[in-house]
């Protein structure tokens, strides 16, 4: 176990009979980083996270979380990690203040309940019962409870699912603050923009295998398409540009032309103006993490792997 890694996973396997939910994956989460674990439903994401949290026994491979085996050393691990499960629920008749005091008592720590509630902007709901809280307020309580024991590593399993944009951004701010405090964050999310905004490093899992790892920029540059010029113009323009050697795609009533260099943009605009064809607007566009994710996962639907798939995913 290296001291700079909070999570180390090597050839992790989880099988249910002949089904391999997690199929020999490897990854490392450096300490102090926000690590996002992405994948479509049924990809093996939740199974992996639950193995790391010590809630599920693995079939094979090696896992170290803060240097501990999460299944056999759960007693030591649980005081050092904080977990916000997906769709967080709590005892419906307890208030956030009572919940924090309960957790503080169970962890045998002196928690600043008012401070924790203030940190997640839940002070005005301190005495409201859980079953009266909104979805966002419940998730915030989940975050507060995950911090009661002052954890080194926080697992946030889809912490913003179902929240309105304002509540999502509020949770994002809490996550950024946790990172600033030097904590490691293991984040799973369905929102690719969230992962792109918050993550230092990302792993994408599909059908039990890791298909891409790296920083958001690295993944986009490795798997994304080149920059494109998007033009809303008459369709006939596509033939003119193709005749000049440009790669043109039709997308939702617009034309997308691949830019091999900055000079290409000027040539295309000149062609448009000189053609006499009608046009409305143009803009440049680069792939987002979501575009890359959809391309990677979509490409795998037919069973093939992306050309630049990392070696571990091919194992």
């Amino acid at each position: 176990m290296s001291t700079s890694a909070s999570v180390e996973v090597s050839k992790l396997l989880k099988a249910y009979g002949s089904l391999r939910a997690v199929d020999g994956i490897d990854f490392v989460v450096p300490t102090g980083e926000v690590f996002s674990f992405l994948g479509p439903n049924g990809a093996g994401k939740t199974t992996t996270v639950e193995i790391l949290e010590g809630l599920r026994r693995r079939t094979g491979g090696e896992v170290r979380v803060l240097g501990l085996d999460p299944w056999t050393q759960m007693d030591r691990l649980r005081t050092r990690i904080g977990v916000i499960p997906q769709d967080f629920h709590f005892f419906p008749k307890l208030t956030p203040l009572e919940a924090i005091r309960l957790y503080a008592g169970l962890f045998d720590v002196k928690a600043d309940a008012a401070g924790l509630l203030a940190r997640v902007e839940l002070t005005d709901k301190a005495d409201a019962r859980f079953d009266t809280l909104s979805g966002g307020q419940r998730q915030k309580l989940g975050v507060a409870l995950a911090l009661v024991n002052d954890p080194e590593l926080c697992f946030l399993d889809e912490p913003t699912t179902g929240l309105d944009p304002r509540a999502r951004r509020s949770i994002w701010e809490v996550i950024r603050n946790l990172r600033r405090e030097g904590r490691t964050i293991f984040l799973t999310t369905h929102y690719l923009d969230e992962a792109q905004q918050l993550s230092d490093r990302i792993a994408i899992i599909n059908q039990g295998r890791i298909i891409a790892t790296g920083s958001p920029d690295e993944i986009i540059s490795r798997y994304g398409r080149t920059e494109r010029l998007r033009v809303v113009a008459e369709p006939a323009l596509a033939d003119r540009l193709a005749a000049l050697g440009f790669t043109v795609e039709r997308d939702n009533g617009a034309l997308e032309v691949e830019l091999r260099s900055k000079a290409d943009a000027l040539r295309i605009l000149e062609t448009i103006v000189n053609s006499g064809l009608a046009w409305e607007s143009f803009s440049t566009r680069t792939d987002t993490l979501e575009d890359v994710f959809i391309r990677l996962v979509g490409r795998l639907e037919d069973g093939s792997l992306p050309a630049s798939t990392p070696p571990e995913a091919r194992a």
């Binding site: 949290e53 809630l55 007693d75 649980r78 005081t79 990690i81 977990v83 499960p85 967080f88 629920h89 709590f90 005892f91 957790y103 169970l106 962890f107 045998d108």
Partner: peptide, 9 residues
């Protein structure tokens, strides 16, 4: 909720 409690001591 049992899972939630299992994450405490």
């Amino acid at each position: 909720l049992f899972r939630q409690l299992s994450l405490t001591p």
